[in-house]
Design a protein around this nucleic acid. Sequence first.
DNA 1: ACGAGTCATTGACATCCATCGATGTATCGG
DNA 2: CCGATACATCGATGGATGTCAATGACTCGT
Lengths: 112, 112
Amino acid sequence: MTQKQIAVLAAEPCCASVLAAPLDEDEAVQLAQGFAALADPVRLRMLSMIAASDEVCSCDLLEPLGKAQPTVSHHTKALADAGLIVGEKRGRWVFWRAVPERIDALRRSLTP
Amino acid sequence: MTQKQIAVLAAEPCCASVLAAPLDEDEAVQLAQGFAALADPVRLRMLSMIAASDEVCSCDLLEPLGKAQPTVSHHTKALADAGLIVGEKRGRWVFWRAVPERIDALRRSLTP
DNA sequence: ACGAGTCATTGACATCCATCGATGTATCGG
DNA sequence: CCGATACATCGATGGATGTCAATGACTCGT
């Protein structure tokens, strides 16, 4: 996990809620970055595939998504920067795993 | 509620889930549009203020957000197009209310 | 050491988007 | 009516973003 990702997680420890109290500026920026990562159909399908399996290799995302390799790499980076997935390089491959805690933090922010 | 908003709701009746099954293209596009509406700090703070009260007038959003009137109008339209808020015009004012069902649909799409 | 496979980065391009001034539309009070 | 208020729309502008070809970096068989 990159320093950037750790910073994001640390800045949003647990419980910023959109629906409960008036959100302050910083909380809004943090949450908006998280939702921005979900605001693309390609990334949503990516996250969907990764979360459905334990581990998914980047090479297994190309064909189902129908996108070029740099595009897939760009989107995995976006999801990783948002802390929603983490990648582990083993040999030639990078295996991606979902980060349920981070996904759950966004989900809880929409909880009444 | 506009025809466009009704169409969105109808196209996503209840249970598209990001984490359960591999998302198909159409579901991904619908969900991405919803999350895109949340992917802006100004709109998140807007939704936060509107959800915290029963009704909020557009004029009461200008000063707390520190944005010009056309900008606020632009964002309320974005949230309304996404079905997250609905507006009712009474006299000179437009009163906005949150749409919990629509917000909840997005929240549930992130539920394991 | 060489070639093939996997992924990241760069650069370029088109598109989308947030923002705001100017203007238009509607409503109310006087 | 007329001026003021609330909101929407238009047009312009600067910045962010999705996409991919080309290239680079790294790993593994042979």
